[in-house]
């Protein structure tokens, strides 16, 4: 199949950007979206031009590195699919495909389709862990956890930190990511000791970088891992309780 790409090219963080048009010829419908970009880049390199910079690593949908706006949708048109797992058979011969980087103040553009997502790391650093001093690893079944709780925590833990939720949100809010990272620990017994500090700190660091949720649900629809906005409500509740609790004990 043959496709026309309109790609956002930007030489550096402060450089002006613009769309450039490229032709992708003889693309196999079985190739992945990133393989298609690799081929376009090989052509560019052969012509002595600067290849399109994009984010990728595992290419199997588990690392959360890849991601771009494809035709106005984060990770493209297929639900529950990271960019690296998108295949060209999703498109038709002759399609025009528009590629843009994630756009949000919390995700400054580094180059072309590559953005800096270290604001997510700041959120994790502020509470996305449990503080335990371990020597040898503790016995796996030492703390009994009901199956439903474990399953729910696993649903939250499925977040790969790709940032599609922020990219898709009209408010540039990071509620879905942060709530998944809060909930995966706050639902488990091991997370209880720091539960409310975690909610408080992670929310406050999130708000330094990102916007405020208006419950539109775009994040959930864009998320390649199907993280539910139920976790956002859970985080709101834990944050409110954190504020009350501090009052009573301090």
């Amino acid at each position: 199949m043959n496709l026309t790409l309109r790609v956002w090219r930007q030489a550096g963080p402060d450089a002006p950007g613009r769309f450039e048009t490229y032709e992708a010829r003889d693309v196999s419908p079985d190739s992945s979206f990133l393989e298609m970009l690799d081929l376009v880049n090989e052509d560019l390199i052969a012509q002595g031009e600067v290849p399109i910079e994009f984010m990728h690593d595992c290419r199997e949908g588990i690392c959360g590195t890849c991601g771009m706006m494809i035709n106005g949708q984060a990770h493209g048109p297929q639900a529950l699919t990271a960019t690296c797992q998108l295949h060209m058979r999703t498109f038709s011969d002759g399609d025009e495909i528009v590629l843009e980087p994630w756009r949000a103040t919390g995700f400054p553009i580094i180059k072309d389709l590559v953005v800096d997502r270290s604001a997510f790391d700041r959120i994790i650093e502020s509470g996305g862990y449990v503080t335990v001093d371990t020597n040898s690893a503790p016995d796996a079944n030492l703390i009994p956890i009901p199956k439903e709780t474990a399953d729910l925590a696993m649903d939250a833990a499925a977040c790969i930190g790709c940032g599609a939720c922020v990219a898709a949100c009209p408010n540039g809010a990071a509620q879905l990511f942060t709530s998944a990272k809060v909930a995966q620990l706050n639902m488990l017994p091991q997370g209880q000791a720091e539960r409310y500090d975690r909610a408080e700190h992670m929310v406050e660091v999130m708000e330094e970088h990102f916007g405020s949720c208006t419950n539109m649900g775009e994040c959930e629809a864009a998320c390649p891992k199907g993280i539910s906005i139920d976790f956002i409500a859970m985080m709101n509740k834990d944050y409110r309780k954190a504020k009350f609790r501090g009052r009573r004990s301090a």
Partner: peptide
């Protein structure tokens, strides 16, 4: 929210849920 997303997408946004 304006500060968090000062630059809108240049391509047409395709809303799915909102």
């Amino acid at each position: 929210n304006r500060r968090a997303r000062p630059e809108s997408y240049r391509s047409k946004r395709d809303y799915v849920a909102a």
